[in-house]
Design a binder for these strands. Sequence first.
RNA 1: GCCCCCAUCGUCUAGUGGCCCAGGACGAAGCCCUCUCAAGGCUUAAACCGGGAUUCGAAUUCCCGUGGGGGCACCA
Length: 500
Amino acid sequence: MIYGVFFLALKPARTRIAPSPTGHMHLGTARVALYDYLLAKKTGGQFILRIEDTDLKRNVPGSEQGIFDGLRWLGLQYDEGPDVGGKYGPYRQTERREIYSQHARILVANGSAYPCFCSTDQLEKTKQEQMKRKENPHYDGTCRDMDPDEAARRMAGGQAYTIRFRMPKEGTTIAHDHLRGDIVTENKQLNDYVLLKSDGLPTYHLAAIVDDHEMEITHVLRGSEWLGTFPLHVNIVRAFGWEEPIWIHLSVFLKPSGKGKMSKRETAAAVKDGYSIFIKDLDELGFTPEGFLNWSALMGWGVAEDDVMNLDQMMDRFNIDHLTSSPAAINFQKLDHFNATHIRLFSTEGLAGRIKPYFIREGLTVDDEVLLKIVPLLRERLVTLDDCLSFGSFFFMEDVIPNPDDLIAKGLDAKQSAAIARRMYEILLAQPDISHESCEPPLRIYVEESGLSANQVFGILRVATTGQKVSPPLFESMEIIGREKCLGRVLKAIEILEKL
RNA sequence: GCCCCCAUCGUCUAGUGGCCCAGGACGAAGCCCUCUCAAGGCUUAAACCGGGAUUCGAAUUCCCGUGGGGGCACCA
């Protein structure tokens, strides 16, 4: 038994993320992809991207590219996929038509499926009647027992048809989910679902099952919205006589209030607050792949402690047995926390590289030497990367324009503040350089002598040199700004104060 | 309406019959540190949905409620 578990753990897993290119890639897809990636990499297996584009009407141009880009941005590089190839391709379902119709024919031949000639109008009509009679809407079975010869005749005659799965009418289906155990469903609850549409393309039910088998997927991780058709899928696998993968139905995400799923409105509201569930928005909002991944990993995966992890650490610790099945409310404050925590973990060079684009996007000219010097000052202050702007833009500006009111120290007036500024100017001028080692001690002595608080005195200097009331540590900042600029800015501040 | 899933602090979770008067993290409150803002350190408040049953013993097993979520397409 012990050995069995041991070998099971080592068996390479093949996992896949199978999104439909119908819109922007979002949190839910990213989390499944993460778990897929972790499981595959941990076991030395492969992580695959498959595009499920069989609903031609819903496909959105550009959305497939968004999936490629999103996965790469997250650092979840797939081993096989439409744009990277692989020996189980093609990886786009619309390019696999022939495979599905072949398999549909196999099911028809072995009696597990049958052609259906009912029109959508007819179907809609019976549905309405069933609802009127307060029955559950279901396919009424008109073509289920049609004579095969007649069916063949109609098909030959060019009549449009679909292929439906022949669900057992009696007994129960036991489907096993790794997290939830056996899920028992009475077969009479199940419908004769369409497998192959009249346009010749498969529905999800056929396509996913066939592809997972053909691509030798060992673990199917998907959202719990598939639980309803889970028994169907299990029946299809069995009708083919195939071995089932390990099924894992993950929990769904609830909106922050915990009541229901994220709607369009909440999604838009989140962006207004500086958050998003769309991967494409994350970079602009200042989130890092590390922070985002860590955050999303922990909604649905329980770790006892030490919850800050990078991809490698997640891989070490990941285990499908620790996945949770209850719905999780999205908590953006926690996203902030993980983002800030990972930012603090970045190296100076690493963080410099991450924040530079934000300064540039703002139209600032970035001196790399200065950038490297300010990173240690900014690091523990950033929640999102774009916070570097409010904390560090002034380092790259020729001049700062302080708000005159901000130059006046608390409890004092403009005249008094000007006098203090002048005195500080004299002290700074007398120092050999602008280093914090040279400047801080004499200014501390001055604070002592003046009977004022450090807060009051240094506050004036902060606003004068940085142009803002909140900044990284004053003396270290001044050192980076440089002697000439600092002295000039103090002089200018005195001027402003004296005019008030 | 029918079917399925889920149920521990406000939130994410640990917990697989005694180690639990329930642990961690976010958030909150307080204190310390402090030139602002942070970061950091320390501390506090905060939960086993309800009711039965099994058991010497239940957050953990079973049943019934209740609440929440998902599904009932020629969409995925």
